[in-house]
């Protein structure tokens, strides 16, 4: 996939161009593109003068970095113990069916990414679904449509 990498130079210019800036730069790239495109990793290695293998090593170490394109809307279903007992898997099933993807993947039109998360510490609100960092508690299967439409 081709990307408009114009924004990269702006990101690079925010930090001193050395290896200490690596994680900060990768975080900003992740924020901008919602994942780390290959070309961006290559450009980072070149600009910061860090071997590509090291950039890749760091980029794959942290879960905060994604290596595949992610959707505009990131839906995370909590499947921790409490949410599981209160039917998280049913909500998951419903969302998977509606989006026609499995948890852990992204729709072809790059609109939605569906993920599971093990616990978000909001067990009293179980089952919990998080849409773009907004928390929804006591979610019912019939709420799926509403969740997908939510901003």
């Amino acid at each position: 996939m081709k990307h408009n990498l114009d924004k990269l130079s702006a990101i690079f210019n925010r930090y001193p161009q050395n290896r200490e800036s690596l994680i900060a730069v990768l975080q900003d790239i992740q924020k901008e593109y919602h994942y780390l495109p290959e070309e961006a990793l290559q450009a980072t290695a070149k600009t910061l003068d860090v071997p590509l293998s090291k950039v890749f090593s760091v980029a794959t170490f942290y879960n905060a970095f994604s290596h595949y394109p992610r959707g505009e809307k990131i839906i995370r279903i909590c499947v921790g113990t409490t949410c599981h007992i209160r039917g998280a898997h049913l909500v998951q099933e419903q969302l998977e069916n509606r989006l026609n993807i499995k948890a852990g993947s992204t729709t072809k039109d790059l609109k939605y990414t569906l993920e599971t998360v093990n616990c978000v510490g909001a067990c009293s609100q179980a089952p919990v679904v998080i849409v773009n960092n907004k928390y929804y508690g006591h979610v019912k299967v019939s709420d799926a449509k509403k969740l997908l439409r939510s901003k």
Binding site: P51, L52, S53, K54, F56, S57, T60, F61
Partner: peptide, 9 residues
């Protein structure tokens, strides 16, 4: 060379 590295964790 820095050709290979550990990947993931």
């Amino acid at each position: 060379f820095h050709a290979i590295s550990t990947v993931g964790r």
